[in-house]
Design a protein around this nucleic acid. Structure first.
Lengths: 336, 336
DNA sequence: TTGAAAGCGCTAACAC
DNA sequence: GTGTTAGCGCTTTCAA
């Protein structure tokens, strides 16, 4: 009977050390890419690894305090929304550049689910958490018992002191968009958006007010709608607006609202000048092409990972809030 | 001087056991949700956990052979494509139902990158890998040294014996779509697609041929294009086609090609009957609304996770290949 | 530079 | 049912 590893047991570092006739320590140094290893030993280790089909167990390597898991956790609303998908893509891409893996979890905008996911991510020992605070907020971040990995909030501010934040210039972007509509002659611009309890919505609403103020135009409060959670709700709302003829332009405060407005245009058979917030792939394909305030999602993802990485490397300066500029993409739909 | 845990050391199970005055074993059983625990002890443990802010270290729990990590690995082409995003969403959703986390990695359709990502996922001890084989394939899956976690291929077959596979009915879906175009009177239907070396493309091409054969229509090979990797390439191609007037209908074999065709329609100012493969959010918003062959991505993701979970539970039957039906969504663009 | 040995936080035999 | 103890695969003092 042969003495050796069981059939289905994967080879360990010990097996490699034994086979290569070197100490465990040396194998560890080898797989960790350390220099200063006797070339001859290195070669023995290399071939032992190959022959054995050895694969490092990163879970075991990371149980020691102070060790990193090499995994970033990202909590977003929902991968179905192209905006979150784009953010996730950006984060994944930057993470991969650094050799990190990305675990993505959806909060479905629900506080309880968000908290479960965060807890799970923490248990999994992720190196950092990039968090989009959900619409209905759960327990406060500050209630999580330390030590916590670096936390970075994206898109919306969170409630953890010391956490960095990456936001888009919702206010300025909206102001520019609404200003463009006003410059086109519109005077009764409807704001079709979601609940202003959402930080982004509130900021966009402020931008909407600001543009009006700067142009000396008075806002009609009955043209402000905060109930477009989904495109379906926006459809009904915009259809009604079109029939009533009360508005002469539309600002769609997120991509759901924009899609709903376009559907309503089609249903009712008439349209209004419109600008949306958040770009999406199909926006240029409509007739006329949809103008939007585009966020630099790529840059936001990159900035978030960067911030977390800096913290990981010991940066313990005060929390930073980065507000990234938006771009007004005028494609035609802003005209009557 | 107080003897105790260092400030930044997170409490361990040992700390909990000490504080609750119970054995380590009992704490372990408690956090693992086992029943049959003395209620009084359970309460002591519960409060000790709360007071200490104890959090389980799942990485440590999973280093023992046979233990699971509670993480699924998903390898897709790219989160930027709404098709992959939808698949990822589906997988994440099903995973969460089971208490599993999802690590998503993009292969960028590159074999080498795919292999790196898979290796990393294996090192991370994921419980299963759901894999979309990249366009340019790397090393064979069978070269990975066992034992391997369950592997499930989605969208395209892979090269690992014993791995389950979940595919869409590309052939049947395309046949139905092209048949609809033929039924509408089209006789010169262009196939605008990607390289046929891609399994899905080849199947869609077969469906295209099949529909023609069934209708007794001869295919003109000069109407078959395999160079639409991106929407940009499709734009040029379709624009040329429109100017030449050689085709009287279009089958866009993926959503990139469809988007490109629509852009070309706009540029040239004329259009043709068209049906695309893969549904996307904006498809119904075009004028006319884009008809598509829709895959049930939700079901595909679900089936993939299900298959992997079955394997995890000891199912060692022969590899299963599931081909999920597609749906032809006729919305208007198939008409002249 | 290298090797032996002591842990990391947790699970699972093994006795009680 | 509960406590004790021996590992899991790896990193890291500590000597040599």
């Amino acid at each position: 009977m042969v003495i050796g590893p069981r059939q289905d047991r994967r080879p360990t570092m010990n097996d490699v050390a034994a086979r290569a006739q070197v100490g465990l320590r040396t194998v560890s140094r080898y797989v960790n890419g350390m220099t200063n290893i006797n070339p001859e030993m290195a070669e023995r280790i290399r071939s032992a690894i190959e022959e054995l089909g050895y694969r490092r167990n990163l879970a075991a390597a990371s149980i020691r305090p102070g060790q990193t898991s090499g995994v970033i956790g990202l909590v977003i609303g929902d991968l179905a929304n192209p905006y979150w998908a784009a953010l996730a893509r950006s984060v994944e891409s930057v993470a991969a550049e650094t050799g990190l893996l990305l675990t993505i979890a959806s909060s479905e905008e629900d506080g309880a689910r968000h908290d479960w996911v965060v807890e799970r991510l923490l248990q999994q020992q992720v190196d950092m958490i990039i968090d989009v605070a959900p619409r209905t907020v759960g327990r406060s971040w500050s209630h999580w018992s330390p030590p916590l990995p670096p936390v970075v909030f994206v898109d919306r501010p969170g409630d953890l002191a010391g956490a960095d934040t990456v936001l888009a210039d919702n206010r300025g972007g909206t102001r520019d968009a609404v200003a463009a509509l006003l410059a086109g002659g519109a005077r009764r611009i409807a704001f079709v958006g979601d609940d202003r309890a959402l930080h982004t919505m509130d900021e966009r609403y402020e931008g909407y007010l600001l543009a009006h103020a700067q142009h000396g135009v008075v806002v009609d409060p009955t043209l402000v709608f905060e109930t477009s959670h989904s495109s379906g709700q926006a459809v009904d709302l915009v259809a009604r607006l079109l029939r009533e003829g009360r508005a002469d332009a539309l600002f769609a405060a997120n991509n759901r609202a924009a899609v709903g407005a376009l559907l309503a245009f089609r249903t009712v058979g008439t349209r209004l000048p419109i600008i949306g917030f958040d770009d999406f792939e199909a926006a240029p394909l409509f007739d006329p092409p949809l103008s939007v305030v585009a966020q630099d999602v790529e840059a936001m993802g990159r900035a978030a990972v960067r911030a977390g990485l800096d913290r990981l490397q010991g940066d313990d300066g005060p929390a930073r809030v980065q507000v990234l500029p938006t771009t007004l993409q005028l494609r035609g739909s802003e005209r009557p």
